[in-house]
Amino acid sequence: MNKWENNKAWFMVIPVFLVVAVSAILPLMTVVNYSVQDIFGPENRIFVATEWYKEVLTDQRLHDALSRQLLFSALVLLIEIPLGIIIALMMPKKGWGASLSLVLVALPLLIPWNVIGTIWIIFTRPDIGLFGAAINSMGIPFDHTAAPLDAWITVLLMEVWHWTPLVVLLAYAGLQAIPEAYFQAARIDGASTWATFRYIQLPKMRGVLTIAVLLRFMDSFLIYAEPFVLTGGGPGNSTTFLSIYLVKLAVGQFDLGPAAAFSIIYFLIVLLFCWLFYQALLKVGTGDKS
């Protein structure tokens, strides 16, 4: 009797298995399939075992792309998280000012990603771009199509402009959820603005900031559309991030085997980092030493 009832539960979860299988597991298995074979056509393929993995793991250009990617994501987190919190702290808490600032802050999030790239190409052009021309006219040479550092600055600025609003919205929601009594208690204790931030606002925002860090890390680690439009990975390879390199490999050179092997490694890296961040953030502030 009990056994039958337990088994019935499986029928309930089968639809989920089917959906996940079609949407995630089957495509992933296709990639696994490609990563262990050399395929020339449907009837013409050779099993190569881990050869593509060896090739990819010893690929110097991939190592460079990975270090570039890590540096980029680290910079993105270091800039966007504090900046997002600062902006959220400065925004009005109620009244029409709150609604207005929310709309203004959220605007960049509403623009399609490839359009963002185009906007920044024009914005930073040394001849006619508002930003590029202004910088150049001050006597500082700036050209993201020629100087790697300028390209980096441009991509970073674009990423910060595009995605800090998300951090702001999350942090703002976290701040709004803190009961007024906490701030009163802090005032009565004589706590400074900094102490109020450090001991009330920051710990109370931990949940939303965990989500913000995870989202921003994953998104920035997988960044493709904006730098592809803006720099195309150049100048040279200076802004060739992992997914740009991956697309060059798969679509540009049609090296499907190495590209598939690389995709799997890429996937595992993202998974690993997310798990590490999640574990780290869970422990921050809870004093949980287990």
């Binding site: 009961p179 906490y182 208690a185 706590a191 502030g285």
Partner: peptide, 28 residues
């Protein structure tokens, strides 16, 4: 020179009970 207790349980979330109780004295 005031102290207040609220309906909601207001403590500093990231501080231990000891540090919470000590906080007004540290400020002073």
């Amino acid at each position: 020179d005031v102290a207040m207790v609220y309906q909601q349980f207001i403590n500093y979330p990231s501080m231990t009970v000891y540090k919470n109780i000590a906080s007004p004295l540290r400020m002073a």
